[in-house]
């Protein structure tokens, strides 16, 4: 596994093979092979753009749902996770340490839609004992990308 390659792709998945090869000091063939292998090994699981949905009409809104569950005998948390992740409304599911068990990111067109989804679908799952819904109001930074425009170059122009 090539850690430097992964870091570069994590920064920008759309680098050309040529750029990647140059930046890593490897041949394009080598880089292509490494990427291919990491895809096969399930290390690289997909490629997606970082979208500022606020700038899109009919944008999505997202909510972070805290799920508390009582895991079923012998099955642990996996069964619940599998059930939750099958919903197309669910973007991410994480098992958490701390005050609750699952962090579920849900997207929908309106607050109402998301709230209904939580109360009708998530909270009715057998092992789920409670839910807490937190709507995301604004995204400042998403996957390392500044969506806010707060990071400006304030270096002066003089000869150093």
């Amino acid at each position: 596994m090539n850690m430097k390659l992964l870091k570069l792709l994590n920064k920008n998945a759309r680098y050309s093979l040529e750029d990647l090869a140059v930046m890593l000091g490897e041949s394009e063939d080598e880089v292509a092979k490494e990427i291919d292998q990491m895809e096969k090994d399930g290390i690289i699981c997909g490629y997606k753009p970082v979208i500022d949905w606020e700038k899109v009409d009919h944008a999505y809104i997202s909510a972070l749902i805290e799920l508390k569950v009582i895991p079923k005998g012998g099955l642990g948390f996996e069964e619940v996770a599998e059930r939750v992740m099958k919903y197309p409304e669910v973007e991410s599911v994480y098992l958490m340490s701390g005050g609750y068990d699952f962090c579920v990111i849900v997207k929908g067109k309106t607050f109402q839609e998301v709230a209904m989804f939580v109360s009708k679908e998530l909270s009715t799952i057998d092992s789920v004992t409670s839910t807490a819904t937190h709507f995301m109001l604004r995204r400042y930074k998403e996957m390392d990308v500044d969506l806010y425009g707060g990071m400006t170059d304030d270096r002066g122009n003089f000869l150093l």
């Binding site: 170059d153 270096r155 002066g156 122009n157 150093l160």
Partner: peptide, 26 residues
């Protein structure tokens, strides 16, 4: 005086200038 002052003066008055001039970490 610094020989490149004039470049930076021009640069400051232009829109959309992209500089590779700064010798300071970002």
């Amino acid at each position: 005086p610094s020989g490149i002052r004039k470049f930076f003066d021009i640069a400051e008055q232009m829109e959309g200038v992209i500089s590779l001039g700064v010798g300071e970490p970002d």
